[in-house]
Simulated scan of single mutants.
Amino acid sequence: MLGRVNHAQLLFPDFSLIACGWLLCRYTALNRLVWDQVESLVYYFLFPVLLFHSIVRSPLDFGATSNLLTAGVGVGLSGIVLAYALPFLPVIGARIDRREHAASAQIAFRFNSFICLALAGRVAGPEGLLMIAVLIGVCVPMFNIAAVWPMARHAQTGFARQLARNPLIIATATGLVANLLGLGVPTWLEPTLSRIGASSLALGLMAAGAGMQFASLARGKLLAVSLLAIRHLALPLIGWSLAVVLRLDAAQAAVLMTFSAVPTASSAYVLAARMGYNGPYVAGLVTLSTVLGIGSLPFALALIAR
């Protein structure tokens, strides 16, 4: 199991890139006009290429990981249900802004696939990478659809039309189909796609930092606390319960707990901002989730160690 210091070191690059974006936007000539264009580049090109490449490059062995896949989908669906239910809960629901919730519900169930990939290999070896590839291939399309739905519904822009036009959903669905058909990326193209993927992560995190306005978090504290509690407390506990019920082996349980406790996806900010919602609020949640991951990852892995 990884120690707390190692988790902090693993999350530091993400946090530092967010901080760089915030500093550059506020204290240099690289102001909002620049970052608006960066967001468009990330949303319409860099992130779609990253998602397609991440899914298509590893064969999905559903048979060998059926129990893990069941548990992972169970964790994801639990996060979606809990996030969607917040506006309808007694007391809490009346104090939650529905538009802010539509944009930020995704924080509760989406995950940072890069951190997942980095950790899976360290907690479960090469086998862990194949396991997490299966979870990414199945859950990324599901989570992207779940992220778009409340925003499309609240804006009354037509859910089907938003899905058909959303570049992240198109890329993930195309990648999953290509993977299932056995299609791969030519070897000569791999380095280019890998570099595009790396640039999308860096620019996406910096754009999230550039868009942060912590004052917006203060106006939606209850919603922020609720979503982050689902992401970093409820989902690890649900993952641990499913690991026990489904009798996952040690490697599968370690991968599942990593999947359930990592910070939320950095692309959450870009998606919310490009769909016309409060991007700064979502960017603040991405930052807080990255920090909270330093505690939730050791907590989750400690559960299975017991």
Rank of each mutant, 00 (worst) to 15 (best):
A207C: 14
M212R: 13
L11G: 00
C20Y: 06
S194I: 11
L77D: 02
T187R: 14
G276W: 02
V148R: 01
L271P: 00
L135F: 08
S54F: 14
Y43G: 01
L135C: 06
M212C: 13
A261Q: 03
I230G: 06
L288G: 15
R26A: 10
D61N: 15
W240S: 04
L227S: 08
P298G: 08
R32A: 12
I170S: 00
L222G: 09
R26F: 06
W188V: 14
L60E: 01
I196T: 13
A283L: 09
V140S: 04
L248C: 11
L17D: 08
A302C: 01
P263D: 03
L11Y: 13
L41E: 03
W188E: 14
L135G: 01
T264Q: 14
I196M: 14
S54H: 11
V5T: 15
T174I: 07
I96W: 04
Q213Y: 09
A234N: 08
F47G: 00
R231S: 09
I170G: 00
S226I: 08
P141N: 02
I136Q: 01
P48A: 07
R4L: 13
I132H: 06
S58M: 11
A250I: 07
V225T: 13
L227A: 10
P236E: 02
L33P: 00
M257L: 14
A268D: 06
I132Y: 02
S104C: 10
F114E: 00
G137F: 02
P87F: 04
R161K: 14
S194Q: 15
S296I: 10
V123P: 10
A171Y: 07
I96P: 04
V244H: 08
A133Q: 04
M151D: 02
L2V: 14
N67Y: 09
A224M: 12
C25Q: 15
A198S: 15
A207D: 03
L163P: 05
L288M: 13
D61S: 15
E100T: 12
G79E: 09
L68D: 04
A210H: 04
I145S: 11
V245S: 10
M206T: 08
V286P: 06
A253F: 00
Y84N: 02
A251W: 05
R274L: 07
A253H: 03
L33V: 12
V270G: 03
I145M: 14
P87S: 07
S267D: 05
A94V: 09
L301V: 08
Y269Q: 02
A268K: 03
G293E: 06
P236R: 04
T172N: 02
A218T: 13
R122M: 11
G158M: 13
A178P: 07
P236D: 03
L271M: 15
A302L: 09
F143A: 14
